[in-house]
Design a protein around this nucleic acid. Structure first.
Lengths: 239, 239
DNA sequence: CAGTCCATTGGTCGCATGGCCAATAAGCGA
DNA sequence: TCGCTTATTGGCCATGCGACCAATGGACTG
Protein backbone atom coordinates (compact mmCIF):
# COMPACT_ATOMS: atom_id res chain seq x y z
CA UNK A 1 0.00 0.00 0.00
CA UNK A 2 1.90 3.05 -1.17
CA UNK A 3 0.83 6.31 0.31
CA UNK A 4 -0.14 7.29 -3.16
CA UNK A 5 -2.19 4.54 -4.78
CA UNK A 6 -0.55 3.34 -7.94
CA UNK A 7 -3.88 2.85 -9.64
CA UNK A 8 -5.00 6.43 -9.34
CA UNK A 9 -1.84 8.15 -10.41
CA UNK A 10 -0.20 11.06 -8.74
CA UNK A 11 -1.89 14.40 -8.53
CA UNK A 12 -5.29 13.27 -9.71
CA UNK A 13 -6.67 16.60 -8.86
CA UNK A 14 -10.01 16.89 -10.57
CA UNK A 15 -12.32 19.65 -9.57
CA UNK A 16 -15.99 18.77 -9.68
CA UNK A 17 -19.20 20.65 -9.26
CA UNK A 18 -20.05 20.79 -5.57
CA UNK A 19 -23.39 19.03 -5.90
CA UNK A 20 -21.81 16.26 -7.91
CA UNK A 21 -18.96 15.77 -5.50
CA UNK A 22 -21.26 15.86 -2.57
CA UNK A 23 -23.45 13.18 -4.09
CA UNK A 24 -20.36 11.07 -4.75
CA UNK A 25 -19.39 11.34 -1.11
CA UNK A 26 -22.80 10.38 0.18
CA UNK A 27 -22.92 7.45 -2.23
CA UNK A 28 -19.54 6.20 -1.10
CA UNK A 29 -20.57 6.55 2.53
CA UNK A 30 -23.82 4.72 1.86
CA UNK A 31 -21.89 1.90 0.22
CA UNK A 32 -19.64 1.63 3.25
CA UNK A 33 -22.66 1.67 5.55
CA UNK A 34 -24.21 -1.21 3.65
CA UNK A 35 -21.29 -3.54 3.43
CA UNK A 36 -19.06 -2.60 6.34
CA UNK A 37 -21.34 -0.92 8.83
CA UNK A 38 -22.05 2.68 9.65
CA UNK A 39 -19.33 2.99 12.24
CA UNK A 40 -16.87 2.35 9.44
CA UNK A 41 -17.92 5.55 7.73
CA UNK A 42 -14.81 7.50 8.47
CA UNK A 43 -13.31 10.50 6.78
CA UNK A 44 -10.35 8.46 5.65
CA UNK A 45 -12.41 5.45 4.51
CA UNK A 46 -14.74 7.54 2.40
CA UNK A 47 -11.87 9.55 0.97
CA UNK A 48 -9.98 6.43 0.01
CA UNK A 49 -13.00 5.04 -1.85
CA UNK A 50 -13.14 8.16 -3.92
CA UNK A 51 -9.38 8.49 -4.42
CA UNK A 52 -9.45 11.78 -2.64
CA UNK A 53 -7.87 13.35 0.42
CA UNK A 54 -9.71 13.14 3.76
CA UNK A 55 -9.75 16.90 4.14
CA UNK A 56 -12.11 17.11 1.21
CA UNK A 57 -14.74 15.12 3.03
CA UNK A 58 -14.48 17.51 5.94
CA UNK A 59 -14.93 20.35 3.49
CA UNK A 60 -18.35 18.99 2.51
CA UNK A 61 -19.27 17.60 5.90
CA UNK A 62 -17.71 19.72 8.65
CA UNK A 63 -19.36 17.37 11.12
CA UNK A 64 -18.70 13.78 10.14
CA UNK A 65 -21.80 12.68 11.96
CA UNK A 66 -23.99 14.43 9.43
CA UNK A 67 -22.50 12.34 6.67
CA UNK A 68 -23.39 9.19 8.55
CA UNK A 69 -26.99 10.27 8.85
CA UNK A 70 -27.22 11.25 5.22
CA UNK A 71 -25.58 8.03 4.13
CA UNK A 72 -28.12 6.03 6.07
CA UNK A 73 -31.00 7.89 4.52
CA UNK A 74 -29.58 7.37 1.06
CA UNK A 75 -28.88 3.68 1.52
CA UNK A 76 -32.22 3.07 3.11
CA UNK A 77 -34.20 4.90 0.48
CA UNK A 78 -32.40 3.12 -2.31
CA UNK A 79 -32.93 -0.34 -0.89
CA UNK A 80 -36.59 0.28 -0.24
CA UNK A 81 -37.37 0.22 -3.92
CA UNK A 82 -36.38 -3.43 -4.07
CA UNK A 83 -39.08 -4.25 -1.58
CA UNK A 84 -41.94 -2.35 -3.05
CA UNK A 85 -41.72 -2.71 -6.81
CA UNK A 86 -43.80 -0.32 -8.82
CA UNK A 87 -45.36 -3.22 -10.70
CA UNK A 88 -49.09 -3.22 -11.21
CA UNK A 89 -49.81 -6.37 -9.24
CA UNK A 90 -52.67 -7.20 -6.98
CA UNK A 91 -52.43 -6.25 -3.31
CA UNK A 92 -51.82 -9.87 -2.35
CA UNK A 93 -49.18 -10.10 -5.03
CA UNK A 94 -47.41 -7.00 -3.82
CA UNK A 95 -47.47 -8.18 -0.26
CA UNK A 96 -46.29 -11.62 -1.34
CA UNK A 97 -43.39 -10.03 -3.15
CA UNK A 98 -42.48 -8.11 -0.05
CA UNK A 99 -42.54 -11.23 2.10
CA UNK A 100 -40.85 -13.38 -0.48
CA UNK A 101 -38.06 -10.89 -0.95
CA UNK A 102 -37.38 -11.11 2.74
CA UNK A 103 -37.60 -14.87 3.06
CA UNK A 104 -35.15 -15.30 0.24
CA UNK A 105 -32.66 -13.23 2.20
CA UNK A 106 -32.42 -10.57 -0.46
CA UNK A 107 -33.00 -7.96 2.17
CA UNK A 108 -30.01 -8.96 4.29
CA UNK A 109 -27.98 -5.82 3.57
CA UNK A 110 -30.91 -3.62 4.42
CA UNK A 111 -31.71 -5.60 7.55
CA UNK A 112 -28.14 -5.26 8.72
CA UNK A 113 -28.20 -1.55 8.02
CA UNK A 114 -31.45 -1.20 9.86
CA UNK A 115 -30.20 -3.01 12.92
CA UNK A 116 -27.07 -0.92 12.76
CA UNK A 117 -29.05 2.30 12.72
CA UNK A 118 -31.42 1.20 15.43
CA UNK A 119 -28.52 0.71 17.75
CA UNK A 120 -26.41 3.64 16.64
CA UNK A 121 -29.31 6.05 17.01
CA UNK A 122 -28.80 5.60 20.72
CA UNK A 123 -25.75 7.82 20.42
CA UNK A 124 -26.68 9.94 17.43
CA UNK A 125 -29.93 11.84 17.91
CA UNK A 126 -30.05 12.99 14.32
CA UNK A 127 -29.90 9.38 13.23
CA UNK A 128 -32.88 8.62 15.39
CA UNK A 129 -34.82 11.26 13.51
CA UNK A 130 -33.76 9.92 10.14
CA UNK A 131 -34.67 6.43 11.25
CA UNK A 132 -38.16 7.48 12.21
CA UNK A 133 -38.60 9.15 8.86
CA UNK A 134 -37.51 6.08 6.94
CA UNK A 135 -39.69 3.91 9.11
CA UNK A 136 -42.65 6.12 8.39
CA UNK A 137 -42.00 5.83 4.67
CA UNK A 138 -41.93 2.06 4.87
CA UNK A 139 -45.12 2.06 6.84
CA UNK A 140 -46.75 4.27 4.28
CA UNK A 141 -45.91 1.89 1.48
CA UNK A 142 -47.25 -1.00 3.44
CA UNK A 143 -50.39 0.88 4.39
CA UNK A 144 -50.99 1.61 0.76
CA UNK A 145 -50.92 -2.09 -0.08
CA UNK A 146 -53.24 -2.90 2.77
CA UNK A 147 -55.73 -0.22 1.89
CA UNK A 148 -55.89 -1.55 -1.65
CA UNK A 149 -56.33 -5.06 -0.38
CA UNK A 150 -59.11 -4.08 1.94
CA UNK A 151 -60.84 -2.23 -0.87
CA UNK A 152 -60.54 -5.19 -3.22
CA UNK A 153 -61.77 -7.53 -0.54
CA UNK A 154 -58.60 -9.61 -0.64
CA UNK A 155 -57.77 -8.95 2.96
CA UNK A 156 -60.40 -10.53 5.12
CA UNK A 157 -61.26 -8.56 8.17
CA UNK A 158 -58.17 -6.64 9.22
CA UNK A 159 -60.28 -5.48 12.12
CA UNK A 160 -59.17 -8.69 13.68
CA UNK A 161 -57.84 -9.75 17.00
CA UNK A 162 -55.62 -8.06 19.46
CA UNK A 163 -55.77 -5.75 22.39
CA UNK A 164 -54.10 -2.79 20.83
CA UNK A 165 -56.58 -2.43 18.01
CA UNK A 166 -59.54 -2.30 20.34
CA UNK A 167 -57.80 0.21 22.49
CA UNK A 168 -57.48 2.79 19.80
CA UNK A 169 -61.10 3.85 19.57
CA UNK A 170 -62.31 6.31 16.96
CA UNK A 171 -62.54 5.38 13.32
CA UNK A 172 -62.32 1.69 12.70
CA UNK A 173 -61.15 0.88 9.17
CA UNK A 174 -58.34 3.38 8.97
CA UNK A 175 -56.94 2.46 12.32
CA UNK A 176 -56.83 -1.24 11.68
CA UNK A 177 -54.86 -0.67 8.54
CA UNK A 178 -52.33 1.12 10.68
CA UNK A 179 -52.38 -1.75 13.16
CA UNK A 180 -51.74 -4.31 10.46
CA UNK A 181 -48.92 -2.27 8.93
CA UNK A 182 -47.24 -1.79 12.27
CA UNK A 183 -47.55 -5.44 13.17
CA UNK A 184 -46.03 -6.56 9.93
CA UNK A 185 -43.14 -4.18 10.34
CA UNK A 186 -42.66 -5.32 13.91
CA UNK A 187 -42.41 -8.84 12.57
CA UNK A 188 -39.88 -7.65 10.03
CA UNK A 189 -37.81 -6.04 12.77
CA UNK A 190 -38.04 -9.13 14.92
CA UNK A 191 -36.76 -11.30 12.11
CA UNK A 192 -34.10 -8.75 11.27
CA UNK A 193 -32.74 -8.93 14.78
CA UNK A 194 -31.09 -12.20 13.88
CA UNK A 195 -29.46 -10.96 10.71
CA UNK A 196 -25.98 -11.06 12.19
CA UNK A 197 -26.39 -14.44 13.78
CA UNK A 198 -24.29 -17.26 12.42
CA UNK A 199 -26.92 -19.75 13.52
CA UNK A 200 -28.90 -21.56 10.92
CA UNK A 201 -32.13 -19.74 10.15
CA UNK A 202 -35.03 -21.36 11.92
CA UNK A 203 -38.14 -22.17 9.85
CA UNK A 204 -40.38 -20.39 12.32
CA UNK A 205 -38.23 -17.31 12.07
CA UNK A 206 -38.17 -17.52 8.30
CA UNK A 207 -41.92 -17.66 8.04
CA UNK A 208 -42.70 -15.22 10.80
CA UNK A 209 -43.43 -12.19 8.68
CA UNK A 210 -45.74 -14.14 6.43
CA UNK A 211 -47.47 -15.73 9.40
CA UNK A 212 -48.02 -12.41 11.13
CA UNK A 213 -49.24 -10.80 7.94
CA UNK A 214 -51.74 -13.56 7.28
CA UNK A 215 -52.86 -13.52 10.87
CA UNK A 216 -53.39 -9.79 11.12
CA UNK A 217 -54.90 -9.44 7.66
CA UNK A 218 -57.21 -12.41 7.95
CA UNK A 219 -55.60 -14.35 5.13
CA UNK A 220 -55.58 -18.10 5.03
CA UNK A 221 -52.25 -19.52 6.19
CA UNK A 222 -49.99 -20.18 3.23
CA UNK A 223 -51.64 -17.66 0.96
CA UNK A 224 -48.62 -15.40 0.62
CA UNK A 225 -46.12 -18.13 0.04
CA UNK A 226 -48.37 -19.75 -2.54
CA UNK A 227 -48.87 -16.44 -4.27
CA UNK A 228 -45.14 -15.78 -4.37
CA UNK A 229 -44.48 -19.22 -5.80
CA UNK A 230 -47.14 -18.77 -8.48
CA UNK A 231 -45.76 -15.37 -9.33
CA UNK A 232 -42.26 -16.78 -9.67
CA UNK A 233 -43.56 -19.48 -11.97
CA UNK A 234 -45.25 -17.05 -14.27
CA UNK A 235 -42.17 -14.88 -14.31
CA UNK A 236 -39.80 -17.71 -15.13
CA UNK A 237 -41.98 -20.55 -16.42
CA UNK A 238 -39.05 -22.74 -17.36
CA UNK A 239 -38.46 -25.66 -14.99
CA UNK B 1 -18.26 -0.25 47.06
CA UNK B 2 -17.05 0.90 50.47
CA UNK B 3 -13.40 1.63 49.79
CA UNK B 4 -13.63 4.49 47.36
CA UNK B 5 -11.65 7.65 48.03
CA UNK B 6 -13.50 10.85 47.34
CA UNK B 7 -11.02 11.89 44.72
CA UNK B 8 -8.65 9.68 42.83
CA UNK B 9 -5.92 10.77 45.17
CA UNK B 10 -3.44 8.78 47.20
CA UNK B 11 -2.36 5.39 46.01
CA UNK B 12 -5.14 3.17 47.32
CA UNK B 13 -3.30 0.06 46.51
CA UNK B 14 -5.43 -2.81 47.77
CA UNK B 15 -4.58 -6.27 46.73
CA UNK B 16 -7.51 -8.62 46.27
CA UNK B 17 -7.99 -12.28 45.60
CA UNK B 18 -7.90 -12.84 41.85
CA UNK B 19 -11.36 -14.35 41.61
CA UNK B 20 -12.82 -11.49 43.59
CA UNK B 21 -11.10 -8.85 41.49
CA UNK B 22 -12.05 -10.55 38.32
CA UNK B 23 -15.68 -10.64 39.35
CA UNK B 24 -15.51 -6.94 40.23
CA UNK B 25 -14.19 -6.19 36.80
CA UNK B 26 -16.86 -8.15 35.01
CA UNK B 27 -19.54 -6.53 37.15
CA UNK B 28 -18.25 -3.06 36.38
CA UNK B 29 -18.11 -3.86 32.69
CA UNK B 30 -21.63 -5.26 32.81
CA UNK B 31 -22.84 -2.09 34.47
CA UNK B 32 -21.23 0.00 31.75
CA UNK B 33 -22.76 -2.22 29.10
CA UNK B 34 -26.20 -1.72 30.55
CA UNK B 35 -26.21 2.00 31.00
CA UNK B 36 -23.69 3.31 28.48
CA UNK B 37 -23.48 0.63 25.84
CA UNK B 38 -21.05 -2.17 25.17
CA UNK B 39 -18.75 -0.12 22.98
CA UNK B 40 -18.09 2.02 26.03
CA UNK B 41 -16.52 -0.92 27.81
CA UNK B 42 -12.99 0.28 27.64
CA UNK B 43 -9.95 -0.54 29.71
CA UNK B 44 -9.88 2.97 31.05
CA UNK B 45 -13.60 3.24 31.71
CA UNK B 46 -13.75 0.00 33.65
CA UNK B 47 -10.61 0.89 35.58
CA UNK B 48 -12.00 4.26 36.52
CA UNK B 49 -15.20 2.71 37.88
CA UNK B 50 -13.15 0.52 40.14
CA UNK B 51 -10.66 3.19 41.14
CA UNK B 52 -7.90 1.18 39.60
CA UNK B 53 -5.30 1.58 36.89
CA UNK B 54 -6.10 0.45 33.35
CA UNK B 55 -3.19 -1.93 33.24
CA UNK B 56 -4.89 -4.05 35.87
CA UNK B 57 -7.81 -4.74 33.56
CA UNK B 58 -5.41 -5.90 30.90
CA UNK B 59 -3.84 -8.16 33.48
CA UNK B 60 -7.14 -10.01 33.91
CA UNK B 61 -8.31 -9.66 30.33
CA UNK B 62 -5.33 -9.65 27.97
CA UNK B 63 -7.80 -9.29 25.12
CA UNK B 64 -10.31 -6.57 25.93
CA UNK B 65 -12.83 -8.16 23.62
CA UNK B 66 -13.20 -11.12 25.96
CA UNK B 67 -14.27 -8.79 28.73
CA UNK B 68 -16.99 -7.39 26.53
CA UNK B 69 -18.36 -10.82 25.83
CA UNK B 70 -18.24 -11.84 29.47
CA UNK B 71 -19.87 -8.59 30.56
CA UNK B 72 -22.72 -9.18 28.15
CA UNK B 73 -23.28 -12.67 29.43
CA UNK B 74 -23.28 -11.47 33.01
CA UNK B 75 -25.61 -8.55 32.41
CA UNK B 76 -27.95 -10.65 30.33
CA UNK B 77 -28.14 -13.50 32.81
CA UNK B 78 -28.76 -11.14 35.69
CA UNK B 79 -31.56 -9.29 33.96
CA UNK B 80 -33.25 -12.46 32.87
CA UNK B 81 -34.30 -13.27 36.42
CA UNK B 82 -36.49 -10.19 36.46
CA UNK B 83 -38.47 -11.60 33.57
CA UNK B 84 -39.00 -15.09 34.77
CA UNK B 85 -39.63 -14.92 38.49
CA UNK B 86 -39.37 -18.17 40.39
CA UNK B 87 -42.84 -17.65 41.83
CA UNK B 88 -45.21 -20.57 41.82
CA UNK B 89 -47.81 -19.02 39.60
CA UNK B 90 -49.95 -20.56 36.90
CA UNK B 91 -48.56 -20.73 33.37
CA UNK B 92 -50.84 -17.92 32.28
CA UNK B 93 -49.73 -15.89 35.28
CA UNK B 94 -46.07 -16.41 34.50
CA UNK B 95 -46.56 -15.49 30.89
CA UNK B 96 -48.62 -12.48 31.90
CA UNK B 97 -45.82 -11.34 34.19
CA UNK B 98 -43.36 -11.67 31.36
CA UNK B 99 -45.51 -9.61 29.03
CA UNK B 100 -46.47 -7.10 31.67
CA UNK B 101 -42.86 -6.56 32.67
CA UNK B 102 -42.12 -5.66 29.09
CA UNK B 103 -45.12 -3.44 28.51
CA UNK B 104 -44.29 -1.44 31.58
CA UNK B 105 -40.90 -0.71 30.11
CA UNK B 106 -39.05 -2.38 32.93
CA UNK B 107 -37.06 -4.33 30.43
CA UNK B 108 -35.68 -1.26 28.69
CA UNK B 109 -32.08 -1.72 29.86
CA UNK B 110 -32.09 -5.32 28.77
CA UNK B 111 -33.70 -4.49 25.45
CA UNK B 112 -31.06 -1.88 24.79
CA UNK B 113 -28.34 -4.32 25.69
CA UNK B 114 -29.85 -6.95 23.47
CA UNK B 115 -30.06 -4.63 20.50
CA UNK B 116 -26.51 -3.55 21.21
CA UNK B 117 -25.27 -7.12 21.20
CA UNK B 118 -27.23 -8.08 18.12
CA UNK B 119 -25.49 -5.37 16.18
CA UNK B 120 -22.07 -5.69 17.76
CA UNK B 121 -21.97 -9.44 17.15
CA UNK B 122 -21.49 -8.50 13.52
CA UNK B 123 -17.93 -7.58 14.36
CA UNK B 124 -17.27 -9.83 17.36
CA UNK B 125 -17.78 -13.52 16.57
CA UNK B 126 -17.43 -14.55 20.20
CA UNK B 127 -20.27 -12.22 21.06
CA UNK B 128 -22.42 -13.91 18.47
CA UNK B 129 -21.84 -17.20 20.23
CA UNK B 130 -22.68 -15.74 23.63
CA UNK B 131 -25.79 -14.17 22.18
CA UNK B 132 -27.01 -17.46 20.81
CA UNK B 133 -26.46 -19.07 24.18
CA UNK B 134 -28.40 -16.42 26.04
CA UNK B 135 -31.13 -16.57 23.45
CA UNK B 136 -31.37 -20.31 23.91
CA UNK B 137 -31.69 -19.84 27.67
CA UNK B 138 -34.53 -17.39 27.22
CA UNK B 139 -36.26 -19.72 24.85
CA UNK B 140 -35.90 -22.55 27.30
CA UNK B 141 -37.60 -20.55 30.04
CA UNK B 142 -40.39 -19.65 27.72
CA UNK B 143 -40.77 -23.19 26.48
CA UNK B 144 -41.08 -24.34 30.05
CA UNK B 145 -43.99 -22.00 30.63
CA UNK B 146 -45.68 -23.08 27.45
CA UNK B 147 -45.28 -26.76 28.15
CA UNK B 148 -46.86 -26.27 31.57
CA UNK B 149 -49.68 -24.29 30.03
CA UNK B 150 -50.35 -26.92 27.42
CA UNK B 151 -50.37 -29.61 30.08
CA UNK B 152 -52.78 -27.66 32.27
CA UNK B 153 -54.98 -26.94 29.30
CA UNK B 154 -54.64 -23.20 29.70
CA UNK B 155 -53.12 -22.76 26.29
CA UNK B 156 -55.69 -23.66 23.71
CA UNK B 157 -54.33 -25.34 20.69
CA UNK B 158 -50.80 -24.11 20.17
CA UNK B 159 -50.83 -26.31 17.12
CA UNK B 160 -52.44 -23.34 15.48
CA UNK B 161 -51.97 -21.45 12.30
CA UNK B 162 -48.93 -20.59 10.32
CA UNK B 163 -46.85 -21.97 7.57
CA UNK B 164 -43.74 -22.66 9.53
CA UNK B 165 -45.40 -24.97 12.01
CA UNK B 166 -46.83 -27.17 9.29
CA UNK B 167 -43.51 -27.29 7.57
CA UNK B 168 -41.71 -28.88 10.48
CA UNK B 169 -43.23 -32.34 10.26
CA UNK B 170 -42.42 -35.05 12.82
CA UNK B 171 -43.78 -34.83 16.32
CA UNK B 172 -46.54 -32.33 16.70
CA UNK B 173 -46.93 -31.13 20.29
CA UNK B 174 -43.26 -30.58 21.06
CA UNK B 175 -42.63 -28.73 17.85
CA UNK B 176 -45.46 -26.33 18.27
CA UNK B 177 -44.20 -25.39 21.69
CA UNK B 178 -40.97 -24.43 20.04
CA UNK B 179 -42.87 -22.52 17.38
CA UNK B 180 -44.80 -20.56 19.98
CA UNK B 181 -41.67 -19.78 21.99
CA UNK B 182 -39.81 -18.58 18.95
CA UNK B 183 -42.71 -16.48 17.76
CA UNK B 184 -43.04 -14.77 21.12
CA UNK B 185 -39.34 -14.02 21.25
CA UNK B 186 -39.47 -12.73 17.70
CA UNK B 187 -42.19 -10.38 18.85
CA UNK B 188 -40.03 -9.33 21.77
CA UNK B 189 -37.16 -8.60 19.44
CA UNK B 190 -39.39 -6.67 17.09
CA UNK B 191 -40.63 -4.49 19.90
CA UNK B 192 -37.12 -4.11 21.25
CA UNK B 193 -35.94 -2.72 17.94
CA UNK B 194 -37.56 0.56 18.84
CA UNK B 195 -36.02 0.81 22.27
CA UNK B 196 -33.72 3.67 21.27
CA UNK B 197 -36.37 5.60 19.43
CA UNK B 198 -37.42 8.90 20.90
CA UNK B 199 -40.84 8.55 19.31
CA UNK B 200 -43.81 8.00 21.51
CA UNK B 201 -44.53 4.30 21.94
CA UNK B 202 -47.34 3.22 19.69
CA UNK B 203 -50.18 1.19 21.26
CA UNK B 204 -49.88 -1.49 18.62
CA UNK B 205 -46.21 -1.81 19.36
CA UNK B 206 -46.81 -1.88 23.09
CA UNK B 207 -49.31 -4.69 22.83
CA UNK B 208 -47.53 -6.67 20.15
CA UNK B 209 -45.93 -9.28 22.34
CA UNK B 210 -49.19 -9.96 24.15
CA UNK B 211 -51.09 -10.10 20.86
CA UNK B 212 -48.65 -12.52 19.29
CA UNK B 213 -48.57 -14.69 22.40
CA UNK B 214 -52.35 -14.89 22.53
CA UNK B 215 -52.54 -15.56 18.84
CA UNK B 216 -49.98 -18.33 18.75
CA UNK B 217 -51.11 -19.94 22.00
CA UNK B 218 -54.76 -19.81 21.21
CA UNK B 219 -55.65 -17.52 24.09
CA UNK B 220 -58.55 -15.13 23.96
CA UNK B 221 -57.41 -11.58 23.14
CA UNK B 222 -56.91 -9.62 26.32
CA UNK B 223 -56.30 -12.63 28.53
CA UNK B 224 -52.72 -11.76 29.39
CA UNK B 225 -53.36 -8.14 30.14
CA UNK B 226 -56.35 -9.01 32.28
CA UNK B 227 -54.34 -11.60 34.15
CA UNK B 228 -51.51 -9.16 34.79
CA UNK B 229 -53.95 -6.56 36.07
CA UNK B 230 -55.60 -9.05 38.41
CA UNK B 231 -52.23 -10.20 39.65
CA UNK B 232 -51.16 -6.63 40.35
CA UNK B 233 -54.39 -6.04 42.28
CA UNK B 234 -53.88 -9.04 44.50
CA UNK B 235 -50.28 -8.04 45.08
CA UNK B 236 -51.10 -4.45 46.04
CA UNK B 237 -54.81 -4.39 46.90
CA UNK B 238 -54.71 -0.83 48.20
CA UNK B 239 -56.05 2.16 46.29
C1' DC C 1 10.94 -12.04 60.94
C1' DA C 2 12.77 -12.64 56.10
C1' DG C 3 11.63 -14.09 51.57
C1' DT C 4 8.85 -14.86 47.70
C1' DC C 5 5.02 -14.52 44.58
C1' DC C 6 2.20 -11.82 41.83
C1' DA C 7 -1.50 -8.23 42.00
C1' DT C 8 -0.99 -3.61 40.95
C1' DT C 9 1.05 0.48 39.34
C1' DG C 10 2.77 4.07 36.14
C1' DG C 11 4.39 4.92 31.95
C1' DT C 12 5.05 4.31 26.92
C1' DC C 13 4.05 2.90 22.10
C1' DG C 14 1.54 2.60 17.80
C1' DC C 15 -2.60 3.38 15.70
C1' DA C 16 -7.00 5.48 14.30
C1' DT C 17 -10.15 8.82 14.75
C1' DG C 18 -12.29 13.95 13.77
C1' DG C 19 -11.15 18.49 13.21
C1' DC C 20 -8.57 22.51 11.69
C1' DC C 21 -5.76 25.40 8.55
C1' DA C 22 -2.72 27.41 5.16
C1' DA C 23 -1.15 26.57 0.53
C1' DT C 24 -2.26 25.11 -4.13
C1' DA C 25 -4.46 24.93 -8.53
C1' DA C 26 -8.63 24.05 -11.42
C1' DG C 27 -12.12 26.07 -13.84
C1' DC C 28 -14.90 29.90 -14.80
C1' DG C 29 -16.07 34.71 -15.98
C1' DA C 30 -14.40 39.25 -17.36
C1' DT D 1 -5.83 36.07 -21.80
C1' DC D 2 -5.80 37.27 -16.90
C1' DG D 3 -7.72 37.02 -12.36
C1' DC D 4 -10.69 35.42 -8.94
C1' DT D 5 -13.28 32.11 -6.50
C1' DT D 6 -13.04 27.97 -4.09
C1' DA D 7 -12.47 22.97 -4.62
C1' DT D 8 -8.74 20.28 -3.23
C1' DT D 9 -4.58 19.18 -1.08
C1' DG D 10 -1.09 18.13 2.56
C1' DG D 11 -0.02 18.54 7.05
C1' DC D 12 -0.70 18.97 11.89
C1' DC D 13 -3.01 18.50 16.40
C1' DA D 14 -5.50 16.54 20.39
C1' DT D 15 -7.90 12.64 21.87
C1' DG D 16 -8.92 7.87 22.90
C1' DC D 17 -8.03 3.31 22.10
C1' DG D 18 -5.59 -1.59 23.17
C1' DA D 19 -1.41 -3.46 24.20
C1' DC D 20 2.93 -4.05 26.42
C1' DC D 21 6.43 -3.82 30.26
C1' DA D 22 9.47 -2.92 34.12
C1' DA D 23 9.05 -1.50 38.81
C1' DT D 24 6.54 -1.60 43.14
C1' DG D 25 4.63 -3.33 47.23
C1' DG D 26 0.88 -6.17 49.62
C1' DA D 27 0.01 -10.50 51.60
C1' DC D 28 1.14 -14.84 52.53
C1' DT D 29 4.62 -18.67 53.66
C1' DG D 30 8.39 -20.61 55.90
Amino acid sequence: MPSRPASTTTSNRTRKRPEERRAEIVDAAAAIALDEGMERITLRAVAERLGVRPGLITHYFPAAEDLVVEAFTRASATERELFFPTGDRTPVGRLAHFVDHMERGLSAPLARLWLNAQHLSRFVPALDTALQQQDALDRERLRSIIVDGVASGDFGRPAGAGIAANRRGTEQTQLDVETAARRILLAVDGTGSYINSSAEVDPVQRGFVADVAEWTLGLAPGTLRATAAASADSAAPSA
